[in-house]
Design a protein around this nucleic acid. Sequence first.
RNA 1: GCGCCCGUAGCUCAGCUGGAUAGAGCGACUGACUUCGAAUCAGUAGGCCGGGGGUUCGAGUCCCUCCGGGCGCACCA
Length: 654
Amino acid sequence: MFHLLEKRIGEAFASRIEELYGVKGATQTEQPKQSSFGEIAVPAAFQLARQLRKAPKAIAGELAEAAGSIAGVASVEIAGNGYLNVRLDRGYYGAGLLSGGEGPRAAAADKIIVEHTNINPNKAAHIGHLRNAVLGDTFVRMLRATGRNVEVQNYIDNSGVQVADVVVGFRHLENKSADDVRGLIAAPKFDYYCWDLYARISSYYAEHPEALQWRRDMLHAIEQGEGADAEMGSLVADAIVKTHLATMWRLNIVYDVLPRESEILHLKFWATAFELLKERKAIYFENEGKNKGCWVMPGSAFREGGGGEGEEDSKVIVRSNGTVTYVGKDIAYQLWKFGLLGKDFYYHKWHKYPDGHQVWASTDQPRPEAFHGKRRFGAGSRVYNVIDSRQSYLQDVVEAGLRALDFTTQADNSIHFSYEMVALSPRTCVEMGVELSEEDKRKPYVEVSGRKGLGVKADDLIDKLTEKALDEVTSRHAEETEDSRRKSARAIAIAALRYFMLKYTRNSVIAFDFGEALSFTGETGPYVQYATVRARRILGKLAERGETLPEFRSLLSREAMARQLENEDCWQLLLTASKAESAIERAVASGEPAHVARFAFDLAQGFSTFYQKFHVLDEPDAEKRTFLLWMTDYFRAQLERTLGVLGIEVPEYM
RNA sequence: GCGCCCGUAGCUCAGCUGGAUAGAGCGACUGACUUCGAAUCAGUAGGCCGGGGGUUCGAGUCCCUCCGGGCGCACCA
């Protein structure tokens, strides 16, 4: 509703401006800082002042005069030195909300691909990965909530160095056979086992550089895809991917398809991309200098303002030994995402979630259960790669690759959805018993490192949060069964975690601190849940008293709405609650899930004041009581909807 | 050296494409549970938005510069 009026008012003034001054263009609207100024402000007079060489105030006067009547608008006033402040017709607005407002939106035909999570399948997920997955998943939910068609991909680098290292660990440090590893996989916490093993082999390499030959051999064996080492590699990678999906499922995060690097290799995606790059002269063969014998992309392709004719700035795509680098594979993969490669994977069913959702994984052979044609993956019109900002250089190269191939539109639609890293606060390091170097102690935060095994594992954090939530729930609801209390505790823990990961904007470094992450008061997920639970409770009490929810539409006429909304508190609260659509749309436009989180908090805060101020069920005046009940139900619906976009569930009690 | 990001209240952070008197949470201090649940609410204190220039009707927001901090800049992924 608010969204609708913003648009209508903007358009109305745009057409008046064109009529009066012959100036075309969209007219922007704002939300005034002070509620006493009205609901929507139009600063158009300031922009026009320069072009027309006229005082803003005079222009504002003429515009206000010409405004005429706009449906839903009560008045237009001139304020300050040229603002146009619009006051809405409260009865109209309330009645509009009651009758369901905006109507359904048209479903989009084209597909947006969001790639997120992308954890190396060689160890347990940690908090850094959580930020990626929560950010990606929430953005997906935002896009879907606003009618977009989205496909979620989780790229699995199952044939890279990190997997190879863990297999080297099993083979050379532990002398394990494939069956030994199968045994470990069957036992709990295989991902934790690998976490430690990975740290061990990393430090072994540091002390015994000659052991790096093991890695090279292993990498080769895994890439070939044959032999005992390759078997162990896929065993490890597949098992770890399963643990990652399980961890993410705890957080309500699911995927549609898992494209795997092994298939990119075996199906020769790269070979096709390579031919294309050569043909269109996006890369060239270097005959001299330090990159002699390599295929490279000139630096001028991806660096601002060029500079880069020199070899210093160019990026190797194919090494002198003929193997392709990571970026090269990524270019091939990106081409596939846009359906530009002329090739596709085969797929098989990888995993079915408890709710029935099916995840597919790529495979290099046709399989009986594979599908054809109809529901192909990839071939999106826009691609969001959720990857931390440290990789922006490589992302620039990938984009430049598309551009060099003349896929300009696709390059423009390749979006690096970047975010800053999650580090550890020094205090948290101490709590975890990590010894810090003198240098690290002076830093504001310490970087997480898989190689050093330094980090907070995702499952540990979720467990810790759940236990704390369970304590809180138990202290209030000792009468409930353990199962029931655990169920609430899980929802609360996930809310705390997801909200914590979302409340910071993307390019702010999070210095992870247990104290802050474990907080359930103030601007947190549980706070928002609490407001929702309370709203539901009021409606629940109504039922307990033997009453049903009134027929709002017949009982609350437009006049009744107008009467009730004369109350300034009610009006302001309703206004806040009705901005969900507008807030989500704005957050999509700015690519900032934190804005949705912020809105959820505002909403919850609004309801909390409402709850405090009005005793709904004890209200003696019949019309007012009906109105307050409607407000309660409306808040409940908006809270639930917004929490849904954040991937947060509402517990029955807390 | 080059590129990107950050610097706003004691702490952690918001501030949408420049707009009216810069906002939250935590922490501190006052108050409010016989009430639809206090994981809450009402209130107080706390700011030269890192410094300095500029652009204009107007700058936390844009440009330049300096100072502090972080991250990148491999024939690693």
